[in-house]
């Protein structure tokens, strides 16, 4: 991937409320980075919720959060481990 200067893309962390999911697969289909995938396991209601397949690929676009009809998925900004590096990368 090509980045301009030393700007780093924001990383996201996906949170899934599995037991609220009804397995419609909107988030899996429309995630632009293919972060999510439907799981084989069942939730308490008997639906297949999605799981995070590739968390590093998430760029915090929040599309899954907007598209979810069940309010069961949302994204937060992933904190960087080294604070010094974070300050440097964000001019």
């Amino acid at each position: 991937m090509v980045y301009f200067g030393n700007i780093k893309p924001i990383k996201g962390k996906v949170h899934i409320e599995k037991n609220r999911c009804k397995g419609c697969a909107f988030c899996v289909e429309y995630c632009p980075k293919d972060v999510l995938e439907m799981s084989e396991e069942f939730n308490v209601k008997g639906y297949h919720p999605p799981f995070v397949k590739d968390e590093d690929a998430c760029v915090y676009c929040q599309l899954c959060e907007s598209i979810c009809p069940e309010f069961a998925i949302f994204v937060t900004i992933k904190e960087e481990e080294e604070e010094g590096e974070k300050g440097e990368s964000r001019p």
């Binding site: 609220r20 009804k22 397995g23 419609c24 909107f26 959060e65 598209i67 979810c68 009809p69 309010f71």
Partner: peptide
Amino acid sequence: RIPHIWCPGCGIGTVVTS
């Protein structure tokens, strides 16, 4: 009141989020 009564795959929840 959540989970709501809308069917799996219904788009109303998406409009509510919007």
